[in-house]
Nucleic acid binder design. Structure first.
Lengths: 359, 359
DNA sequence: CGGGCCTGACCGGTGACCAGT
DNA sequence: AACTGGTCACCGGTCAGGCCC
């Protein structure tokens, strides 16, 4: 009676929620026993265990996270930063994080990051740390920016960089071997007979631009093709509009290139669009390859041959590393993550490549 | 001394976090006064208020959300469901939710939803409710699925449908007038001289397929063009591959269409690809328009004329409605949201349209 | 002595109530 | 009586320690 009175009169805002006490009363045990059952701990007879589990299911009891947290059962809490422009890679990272988080029982706070200012990033991250975040998941290009932001004073919580363009000191990373992938795809063009192969490079600050350029250069050299500065044009961003200008320049150089490797699929789409506008037919006159296997790679005509890397899988791996890292770090604050996980990539062949035209 | 001892010996896992007690001691007041300062409540002298605020800043105190929650200061907690396939619309919804959430001080739980099974959706949503979610944000096509799932037993928490294809009973919604937008874009084709205008419709179950088809039909009729079943092909999904088959069929019908309105940009890209493969030049021989202003609309050649709706803005509006709705609902459980907010759309002109070819 | 279960203090805040001026 | 500010119980769990058989 008394208890009912109390419950009826309480001021809580989630009125009806079933508590552990309710379960305990229903099963005629103490709350502690219920807790022990939930956490599969010893010191509970099989019989009682079963009874309690039944009551839990019957009443629809779900532990109150806030209470658990307060009592000291804290989950890892990771901060995920994302840039204002949501590309398919970032979308996959966000989705992958959510999936991994509920699987691994990890809390995630998602925050928008300014891409232009390292100091603003440092402020954002500090604020998140103060609010309880104890590990960061940093997709490219935020990882690179964080490296700048924490150049002097190292970041003191675990962090994992996702697909960073360069290895970043003091962080773990999950990436594919982009240099090698670029090498492979350029070699494939060589094998089709192409000799004048151009490259639309991405901005140095971003993602795998540097690794992809390196792979291109390595492949050219390995096949005995002299490096030619006219063959490489750097686009100021990975955006379509900027790619158009770069493509225009590259395609005006003489003698004409017969194949172009663009640093991502959006830039490759720019190349295809420019070719079509100029009446150059792809792939008969010009072969084009991209990188990332973004949706646009399938949706343009002809479909783009490209490199596929599975961002969701990479993200889930990263989250696992982070979860372990945070747990370890909580025990020993001097621990620094440094794993470098390399996941496989895959060449996806579509219609945008053909043998080089005979002269 | 005693207190220091206690703090030193405590078992908490977030060792160094500054608590309200620390601030209270530093300012020589009670914790309650600190609380009052934080919440801008009366009964604190300006002098003391300032002192406390200083100490808070100096110590870097941040309230512990778990403790607040437990003590009854509960924020609205919205559940966001998303489909496995992350298209640009969903990506924008997720990003917009995160932004709105931190602005409005709302908690968000993001969960993957199965698209095939209404019962699974109901289970997921129930589980989320048990875990404390008290409002849902349902982007299309999940909103439509939820309508089926809760046909018999109404959903008893506030929910907002984002860009639902059809109005959904018992939910608020934020959408643009898709019928009118489709009407406008088809009329634009008419004004360019097109008379045989085809439509690649999307699946009935999804998003605005029905409204867009309706707008198309209305426009045709309004301009005195007889409805012709050969002019409308339904694609089984909004995916590129399915669109190719639909485009193929539509472009084989005689007499030839001179313009095609596709129900979204991906399908429009399918049309463009099919045209190019068949040697039909766009826009000279065939004008193509899409819907959504997805990234692909810019990235194909020629760029697609399409309808732009700002998913981020729509999401932020939806979140505001939900936040108010949850607060109201907590006071009076009989309240049901029913607002229907219509946001403006915009026709984006790109190169994929031209005057109809003269016969 | 040890397995099985319960009691009491505590996590970090907040609301109700109370005590001075 | 109107302001200020402090005290204490409580939110819903968890851990240490105790009691009993």
């Amino acid at each position: 009676m008394d208890i009912l009175e109390t419950r009826r009169g309480r001021r809580t805002l989630h009125p009806q929620r079933v508590t552990m006490k309710d379960v305990a009363e229903a099963a005629n045990v103490s709350t502690m026993t219920v807790s022990n059952v939930i956490h599969n701990r010893a010191y509970v007879t099989a019989e009682l265990r079963k009874l309690v589990q039944e009551k839990i299911k019957h009443l629809g009891y779900v532990p109150n996270r806030a209470a658990q947290e307060l009592a000291g059962v804290s989950r890892p809490h990771v901060g995920l930063l994302y840039p204002a422009i949501i590309n398919p890679f970032i979308a996959a990272v966000i989705a992958g994080s959510m999936r991994a988080a509920s699987r691994l029982k990890v809390d995630v706070s998602v925050q928008l990051a300014q891409l232009d200012d390292p100091r603003a990033l440092r402020t954002t991250m500090s604020r998140m740390k103060e609010a309880g975040v104890d590990g960061f998941l940093l997709p490219s290009p935020i990882a690179e920016l964080a490296a700048t932001a924490f150049r002097k004073k190292a970041l003191d919580v675990p962090a994992v960089a996702l697909a960073p363009g360069i290895p970043i000191a003091g962080m773990a990373s999950v990436r594919s071997d982009e240099r090698q992938a670029a090498y492979d795809i350029v070699s494939m063009l060589f094998d089709l007979g192409h000799r004048r192969i151009g490259h639309v490079a991405g901005p140095d600050s971003q993602g795998g631009s540097i690794a992809r350029l390196q792979g291109y250069s390595d492949a050219m050299r390995a096949h005995g093709l002299a490096p030619d500065p006219h063959l490489v044009i750097k686009s100021p961003s990975f955006r379509f509009q900027d790619g158009l200008a770069a493509a225009e320049t590259l395609m005006s150089s003489e003698p004409r290139v017969t194949a172009i490797f663009a640093a991502n699929d959006t830039l490759a789409a720019s190349v295809v669009a420019t070719a079509q506008r100029r009446g150059i037919s792809v792939p008969q006159d010009l072969s084009v390859v991209g990188y990332d296997d973004a949706p646009v790679a399938e949706q343009v005509w002809p479909g783009l041959t490209t490199i596929h890397q599975d961002a969701q899988v990479m993200t889930e791996r990263a989250m696992e590393i982070l979860e372990k890292g945070i747990k370890a770090w909580r025990k020993d604050r001097s621990i620094r993550l440094a794993e470098d996980v390399v996941v496989p990539y895959e060449v996806v062949r579509r219609a945008s490549c053909a043998p080089a035209p005979v002269k």
